[in-house]
Structures are given as structure tokens and as C-alpha cells.
Design a protein around this nucleic acid. Structure first.
Lengths: 164, 164
DNA sequence: GACGAGGTTGAGCACTATGGTCGCCGTAGC
DNA sequence: GCTACGGCGACCATAGTGCTCAACCTCGTC
């Protein structure tokens, strides 16, 4: 994916501070023409820079305040099959494939400890899953954020990938 | 956090399908009065149901296509100090405290493998950090999603927490 | 140096949405 | 029976939208 340029970064920063800001408000704030902001927003969406809206929703607000990471080892050749089965479990909110000892990292949410226990059971019951290890999230110490990276990109002078 | 009611869930579902939908469009779609939708949206934001806008931004679009989970063990009594230090590293996008052998799970993003390597070094260099283990995310098999839970809540008949 | 592609700009257009307030009404709880 | 709350529909003035246009400017290419 092509990285965004500094102007887009500033746009995203502004949106971060005021997600419901209107296009004209953003244009004023950034010192750009309304037209430009509108065009750039459209392009950002089209390029897939913005992920699904779901990512902004707090699972706790859906009655699932518990969050856990389940590291999972699977029979390698049944990986696709396992992925499909995991996707069918509503409480599984994300699955990523890892490099290393564990094959999958499964992020799950649950209503309470009891529910979490049975979800962990559901994971183990999936054919192809060999071993799981559940790590409960007790506290979010640094909430998800991208502003430091946004700020860096907004302040870079050119449009190419610069610092580390 | 108080869970949302089925109407709010349907509202969030609709937003998920069309994040930039106007209030009137949402009202039409849900068969509600515009006034109601507006009031509910305001309440949703006020209640903190919606997290930061950053969560929708794809780190790859910021020039950081690599993502890794770093499990970290720290000197327990220096936890706060360590958290602060980690928060100062731009590539650290989230830190959660875990129950179990590992104390922290640190989500980092990086420009390339080289950058990732030096970020891992930065983590280890934080005073109080005893041991780290980096797991590179190779593929997102199930992208983050909440729609199954939203759908369940949207279809439940009452406003209290129901099924598991 | 001329060329075209692509992005930015300001203007203008008809249409629509916004945020605010109002009174009315049904439901749930006391 | 009363109150609190949420939904409703209506109204208003203001503001934003999505769109098109022609005029730039700055690249990189030929």
C-alpha cells in the first residue's frame, strides 16, 4: 500500500481530533480548498486507508467487556479450514497468522469469565487446532493510537517514506 | 460500561456499512425519526461507545506495513515507569497488561524488518523490561470485525445482556 | 522547450442536511 | 395517578453537500 503524503496525514490528524467534522471545517483548519479536502477524503476511502467502522466500536458497549488473546497451534495443512471455523465464532474478533512457534493469534471478547471459558473450549474443539493458550487482557495501558506516526508523517517535507 | 440496546446496535450496523452516511439516511434506513437517530448518535459518542478515529486508520497507509506483537516481562514494581517509556515510542501502537507469565503485550508497527529489529531493541532498552519475545504478524486471516456481535444484539428482544 | 497527466483552486449551482427547539404521546416505574 | 424518559413529527435559519467548470501549477516525458 502506497503511504499517504503529509497533507493526507494532517487531514487524518484533524479527523482524529474531530471525527464528525464537516468537510468545510477540515478545509478551513488545514488552509486548503474545500474541493481539495473532499477529493482527498474520497481518495483515502477508495485507497483503503480507512478500515471498517467496526474498529471504532468498543466491544464493552456490546456487552463484551472481557478481551483475551488466544495463541493457537494448528495442523499446518488445515490452516484454511481452521480459519473458516474460527470466523464462524462471533466472539472471535480477529485472527492473524504469526511467524514463530505459535501459528495463530486469536483475539476474542466475552461477556464474562464463564463465557470466555466456553469460547476457549470452542476454539479447542475446532478440528485442526492442536493447542491453545489464553491470555486475558486485564488493562489497556496504552490505548490504540497512531497519532505519533501521523504527526511524524505530517511534518515530513516530501511524500516518500522517510524516517524509521 | 452499559451495553447498548438493539436499536443502537442496528444504528452501529448501518454505520458499519456506510460510515459516511448522513443522519437522515440512517433514519430512513432504520425506520426511525431523524430526531431519534441524532439523539442516539450523540449519546453513543458521549457514552464512549466509539473509540478514537485512529482505530480506523490502516498503519500500512502511514508507511508501516509490518505489525508485530511483543510479549514482554517487566519488573513488576516498575510497571508504570515502563508503560510511560513505551508510550514514548511512536511505533508502539498499543500496550495491554496481561494475566499470566507475560506481563505486557505490546503491539508495534514498523516500516520494514530492519526498523522492527531496532524497535525491538528499544523495548529491551527500557529500564524495567526483563525479557521480550517478538511475534511478527504475517497475515490477517480474519480482519477485525464486530458485526456478528452487533447482529446478535440487534436481534435481541430486550435491552439487557442476554446470550453468551 | 512543448506536451500531457494529475493535483489544487475558486466559483457557482441546486439540493440536502444540520442542530436547535417545540409540544405531544406512549411506556415504565414509583 | 404522577413523573421521567424516549420517541416522534414539525418547524426554523443556517450550513454543508456533491457536482461541474475553467484556470492554473508542477511534474516527468518526449
Amino acid at each position: 500500500m502506497e503511504p499517504v503524503d503529509p497533507i493526507d496525514a494532517r487531514l487524518l490528524q484533524a479527523l482524529g481530533e474531530e471525527p464528525r467534522a464537516t468537510v468545510v471545517a477540515l478545509a478551513e483548519r488545514l488552509g486548503l480548498a474545500r474541493n481539495t479536502v473532499q477529493a482527498r477524503l474520497t481518495r483515502l476511502e477508495a485507497r483503503g486507508v480507512l478500515g471498517s467502522f467496526d474498529r471504532r466500536i468498543e466491544p464493552a458497549a456490546l456487552g463484551h467487556p472481557l478481551r483475551a488473546y488466544v495463541t493457537t497451534r494448528v495442523e499446518q495443512r488445515r490452516l484454511a479450514e481452521v480459519t473458516t471455523a474460527l470466523a464462524r465464532i462471533p466472539e472471535v474478533v480477529e485472527v492473524v497468522g504469526l511467524a514463530g512457534d505459535d501459528d495463530l493469534l486469536v483475539q476474542v471478547v466475552a461477556r464474562d469469565a464463564d463465557a470466555l471459558y466456553s469460547i476457549a473450549g470452542s476454539l479447542l474443539a475446532v478440528p485442526g487446532v492442536e493447542r491453545t493458550s489464553t491470555a486475558l487482557v486485564m488493562r489497556q495501558l496504552v490505548p490504540f493510537r497512531l497519532d505519533p506516526l501521523l504527526a511524524r508523517r505530517a511534518n515530513s517535507d516530501d511524500t516518500s517514506t522517510r524516517p524509521g
